[in-house]
């Protein structure tokens, strides 16, 4: 249960971080996913680049119609209400049920999203938002719509030379509805089925079904799901052809319950 040897570097600015990345370093933020993988030797990087000390990494910046959340913002700060407005209230509710407080004190929004464990909470919730992941690479900033950021199991749209700098979410208009449901046998464990629905007034509601053995399913127009949660959730999940009937039933219930809450 001890990691294989690795070198450690702590870049002080973003260009040094990108240089470390280009030299093959594995980036880490809170280390709450990479830490266990190192101890279990599921990951054996030669060098780890610790991003936690980068300028602005944990800064939350409210702008006129959006909030930019630094990738290094911890789950605990989000749980404690550091993000303003209704979007902050939604994120706080999600953050509170991520793992355990001792993990939330170190684990970060950007680290979790970039790691892209299919059962992770931000992987379930953020693709529902009409916002962007802000990637920084040698060519500068690139804005990636959150709905297509996670591309697979432990796979994201970042290029090998890019780091996730921040997540930008819109401030939500009055009348926005949100629903979320996940199943854990024990509080804090990775979920076995997760879904959420976000409905902004005047635009098509979006739904996400995650904790599958594949990339999260993003439904860009979930109006039919909100109109008939039970039947539509059954139809959508059937189309996934999940091998395990227990997981299939949980996925159906997750999607239905999230839709019923948001309807």
């Amino acid at each position: 249960m001890k990691p294989a040897p690795f070198d450690y570097t702590r870049p002080r600015d973003w260009s040094a971080a990108l240089a470390a990345l280009a030299a093959g370093a594995r980036p880490t933020a809170g280390g709450q996913s990479l830490g266990p993988m190192l101890n279990l030797r599921l990951a054996m990087p030669e060098t780890i680049a610790d991003l936690r000390h980068l300028p602005g990494f944990g800064v939350i910046d409210q702008q006129r119609d959006c909030v930019r959340i630094g990738a290094g913002t911890t789950h605990a700060r989000i749980e404690d209400g550091a993000v303003p407005g209704q979007v902050g209230a939604i994120l706080a509710r999600i953050a509170r049920n991520i793992a355990y407080r001792a993990v939330r004190n170190r684990g970060t929004l950007g680290g979790s999203l970039s790691h892209a464990d299919p059962a992770a909470d931000w992987v379930t919730v953020l693709p529902a938002f009409p916002g962007h992941a802000i990637a920084l690479g040698p060519e500068g900033e690139r804005r990636i719509p959150l709905g297509c950021f996670v591309t697979g199991v432990f796979a994201v749209a970042l290029q090998e030379t890019e780091l996730l700098q921040a997540v930008e979410l819109p401030m939500l208009p009055e009348g926005t509805r949100f629903g979320h449901w996940k199943f854990c046998r024990k509080p804090g464990e990775f979920s076995k089925a997760s879904a959420c629905v976000l409905a902004l007034p005047g635009s098509a509601p979006r739904a996400v079904l995650a904790a599958l053995d594949q990339r999260p399913l993003v439904i860009d127009d979930a109006a039919a799901l909100l109109a008939a949660p039970e039947a539509e959730a059954a139809r959508i999940v059937e189309g996934l052809r999940l091998a395990d009937p227990w997981r299939e039933a949980l996925a159906r219930v997750a999607l239905r319950n999230a839709a019923q809450e948001a309807a």
Binding site: P3, Y8, T9, R10, T28, G31, Q32, G35, P36, L38, N39, I48, D50, R52, A76, Y100, R101, A102, V103, N105, R106
Partner: peptide
């Protein structure tokens, strides 16, 4: 398991997940 929980920079953390560099 939580057995190794310590206070790190003022808040509880898992000491088994914090490697020397960090």
């Amino acid at each position: 398991c939580g057995a190794c929980t310590v206070e790190l920079d003022g808040a509880p953390a898992r000491s088994c997940l914090m490697h020397a560099g960090s």
